[in-house]
């Protein structure tokens, strides 16, 4: 069998292939870092061939956006959590006692 001019290159490229574990790590790693050219390319190639990791990437995006909603949720005034009345009066008492002590 003759080996064409691209053979060595193809062998090299196939050794570069990454599996789902590394790909899914890179998916969360790229949120805060710029991937290097090789990592970026490896991830692209993996995502082209792996439908599970494509789903994973999409779901992680959704996770991030819903966490954003979660963060915003309580920064405006209409927030559902209230200090229970017992705890409120207990803390008020403590604060008053501390104020009077000085």
């Amino acid at each position: 069998m003759t080996k064409g001019p691209g053979y060595r290159f193809m062998v090299y490229m196939s050794k570069q292939m990454i599996a789902c574990d590394e790909a899914s790590f890179l998916i969360s790693y790229r949120e805060d870092h710029r991937l290097g050219l090789r990592k970026w390319w490896n991830l692209k190639m993996h995502l082209l061939s792996c439908h599970l990791c494509r789903k994973y990437a999409r779901q992680i995006g959704e996770l991030n956006s819903s966490l954003e909603v979660y963060r915003e949720h309580c920064s405006h005034e209409s927030c559902e959590h209230h200090l229970s009345p017992e705890a409120g009066s207990r803390i008020t008492k403590l604060v008053k006692r501390d104020l009077n002590a000085k």
Binding site: Y70, H73, C74, C79, E80, H81, H82, L83, S84, A87, G88, R90, I91, T92, L94, V95
Partner: peptide, 27 residues
């Protein structure tokens, strides 16, 4: 307590997921 109690409590409970712990933290 009346002004910021609820706000601080919600802030805390979002992060500790436990109301008695959150009350302690507010206190």
């Amino acid at each position: 307590v009346e002004r910021y109690g609820d706000y601080l409590f919600s802030y805390a409970i979002m992060r500790v997921n436990d109301s008695s712990k959150a009350e302690d933290i507010v206190q």
